[in-house]
Design a protein around this nucleic acid. Structure first.
Length: 424
RNA sequence: GGAGGUUUGGCAGAGUGGUCGAAUGCGGCGGUCUUGAAAACCGUUGUACCGAAAGGUACCGGGGGUUCGAAUCCCUCAGCCUCCGCCA
């Protein structure tokens, strides 16, 4: 959520920035917000004046009672009766406009950073660089969904039987390889200074709201209605919410967190689209990295996170490319996002395996995550997060790219984790 | 799941219908003293919104109610603790 003061101080700049994200009705929304804001302030003044009068009267009545002046006190009570009605009305008016202001405000996306390229579709994203080499596969190379069957690594059918499609069942060396990747990613993150957490996999309404999953993306989450809890779509939600309603001493910044969790996504409306094999699942594993940063250092931190992810891909020897998303392709809450894609050689496709974003104060504003600066002023911190990394598509690319006529070669860095160097 | 207790400022802890945004202690910050530090002493020390300012308003776990007036009384929800039950 944008800060109301930013909009109040420079509405034109806000509208101009939102154009980069192709928000068509930005001008209308901003105008609406400014109008609500003005109304809200005037209504607060009215309400506060009435409350002030009521407080004064109550005090006077108390004094009069104390002095034994009952009749005088009772006379004053008469005024408070009508005052009560006005206060009730004033409070309702204020609450209603406050609610409307908030509802409009949460619908406004974050402002993109000035380096974000203008563009509406993924075609207009900006490729930063590439790394690794695309392997030349042998004649009988297969896509991963055939490989996992051939070597009995993942059983999609039984997963579907137990739960439904998109819930894979990992088996034997497939399970071991998955666990190896999780441990490998976590070790890289903790070596880079991230503190490891194992958070709850289910969150309440307040947490889902604070990181922006609610109210807009409710359909993306599995909802446990009996307890009004949500299965996490990403570890970002519980990890970032550790710092909800927190004021940090400036000296504690930056904060670096990591955690492995399964992620649950309903993917409503995505049925049939790239859903073969591991490409798109309802449950998948991911290691997430999160940073809480001083505003002055958040973009350096973003670069650092990009480098972190890049080095992991390099050590796995996967061909990758890094893309800076254009305004139209960026998420609602992000000010700048880098996507990582790896090349899945048998599918002959680039697959998104990580997304690293700086949210600046957008998320912190909802979280009420602040730090106390040198002048003892509380300021919103910057939050960043990224996948490091999402497992399924890494697994898909590894299996496809490393297949040989004799079996699938396990990358060197993973062998200590798997205990085997070849799947045959 | 049942019974009881509890939830107050960074922490500890008082307050049980009016002058309480809230005593006191610790911690923090500033100062005096000191070559420096400690100790001692003095001062200061919550958050948010409105306002040019003066000042105003709200917040004592969340929500609602009683009352002219609620941290204090009532209802309700949640967290924590203890005992019982169940259980990995």
């Amino acid at each position: 959520m944008l800060e109301i003061t930013t909009i109040r101080q420079n509405p034109e700049a806000v509208i101009a920035r939102l154009k980069v994200k192709y928000v068509e009705n930005a001008a209308e929304m901003v105008a609406q917000i400014l109008q609500y804001d003005a109304q809200r302030r005037s209504l607060q003044q009215q309400r506060d004046d009435l409350l002030n009068r009521s407080n004064t009267l109550a005090q006077e009545i108390g004094q009069l009672y104390k002095q034994g002046k009952r009749p005088e006190a009772d006379a004053l009570k008469a005024e408070t009766l009508s005052l009560k009605e006005s206060i009730k009305q004033a409070e309702a008016d204020f609450a209603s406009i406050d609610e409307q202001l908030n509802q409009t405000l949460v619908q406004l996306p974050n402002l993109p950073h000035e380096l974000v390229p203008e563009g509406a579709t993924p075609e207009e994203n900006f490729e930063i660089r590439r790394g690794g080499t695309i392997p030349a596969l042998h004649d009988k190379a297969q896509p991963h969904w055939d490989l996992v069957q051939k070597y009995r690594l993942i059983d999609f059918e039984t997963g579907a039987k137990i739960t439904g499609s998109g819930f894979p069942l990992f088996v034997g060396r497939g399970a071991k390889l998955q666990r190896a990747l999780i441990n490998f990613f976590l070790d890289r993150a903790t070596e880079a200074g991230y503190t490891e957490y194992i958070p709850p996999h289910v969150v309440n309404h307040a947490s889902a709201y604070a990181t922006g999953q609610l109210p807009d993306k409710e359909a993306q989450m599995y909802h446990v209605t009996l307890d009004d809890l949500y299965l996490i779509p990403t570890a970002e939600v519980p990890l970032t919410n550790i710092y909800r309603d927190v004021i940090l001493p400036e000296s504690e910044l930056p904060i670096r967190l990591t955690g492995y969790t399964p992620c649950f996504r309903r993917e409503a409306g995505a049925a049939g689209k790239d859903t073969r094999g591991l490409n798109r699942l309802h449950q998948f594993d991911k290691v997430e990295i999160v940073q809480v940063q001083h505003p002055e250092h958040s973009y350096a931190a973003l670069d650092e996170m990009v480098l972190h992810v890049e080095q992991i891909l390099q050590s796995l020897q996967l061909p990758y490319r890094i893309i800076r998303l254009c305004g139209g392709d960026m998420s609602f809450a992000s000010a700048m996002t880098y996507d990582f894609e790896v090349y899945s050689a048998a599918q002959q496709k680039w697959l998104e395996v990580s997304s690293v974003s700086n949210f600046e104060t957008f998320q912190a504003n909802r979280l009420q995550l602040r730090y106390r600066d040198a002048n003892k002023k509380n300021r919103l911190a910057h939050t960043l997060n990224g996948s490091a990394l999402a497992l399924p598509r890494i697994m898909a690319a590894l299996l496809e790219n490393n297949q040989t006529p004799d079996g699938i070669v396990v990358p060197d860095v993973l062998c200590p984790y798997t205990g085997f160097s070849m799947i045959d």
